[in-house]
Write a protein that binds this DNA or RNA. Structure first.
Length: 186
DNA sequence: GTAAGGATTGGC
DNA sequence: CCAATCCTTACT
């Protein structure tokens, strides 16, 4: 008798993090997101899996470094959606930045994925995952090409917080310790 | 319509 | 140090 051994198929894995996980407030979610597995599946069957090692929080219209500080525009609209969607935008005309929208509806906030196990730098992350404009608004709880899977929580002793990178214009907000790094050997 | 500048990177 | 490269925004 034939048995059902292929219960856990790629994108249908029970490990996939649900929308609810991403609907926590960004600053509470950030340390939990470190160590989670980012998965990118291609139409030819190839799959990339990398743990998240570095990220930054962009929180609310009051945060001068957050794109939502410019108000609600076509570009920032996705950040006003409930957590679990992806915010992708082009910077310096060449790099696609991967952000995860967090928090409840109408509370603009997102987490920028700056580094993976074998990929350093947010521009390189986008290139590695072959992201483009079509990923903006992608639903991580349903997508067949990009999602996150659960993994053990990183102990706080292995997490370092620093100011965010490249936001010198953000006045007092540039001092916030909203960049989080997972340093496994610390 | 037009111009300025950016959540970056790599090369000189 | 600075060019690459183009989208979004804020002006006129």
């Amino acid at each position: 008798m034939k048995r059902h051994i292929n219960v856990e198929l790629n994108s249908e894995s029970s490990l996939r993090l649900p929308a609810k996980f991403f609907q926590q407030e960004a600053l509470a979610l950030a340390p939990q997101l470190l160590g989670k597995v980012l998965v990118r599946a291609f139409s030819d069957g190839k799959i990339l899996r990398q743990k998240v090692t570095e990220l930054e929080v962009y929180y609310g219209e009051e945060d001068l470094a957050c794109h939502a500080s410019k108000g609600r525009t076509l570009r920032t609209e996705v950040m006003y959606a409930p957590g679990g969607l992806v915010y992708v935008y082009l910077i310096y005309g060449m790099y696609w930045m991967l952000n995860i929208v967090t928090g409840p509806k109408e509370h603009p906030q997102a987490i920028l994925i700056r580094g993976l196990e074998e990929v350093s730098g947010p521009g390189r992350v986008g290139k590695f995952l072959q992201l483009d404009k079509s990923f903006n608004g992608e639903d991580l709880s349903k997508s067949q090409r990009l999602w996150l899977e659960d993994a053990p929580t990183i102990p706080s002793s292995a997490i370092t917080a620093t100011p965010r990178i490249g936001i010198d214009y953000a006045q007092h907000c540039k001092e916030y310790l909203w960049r989080f790094l997972w340093l496994p050997d610390k």
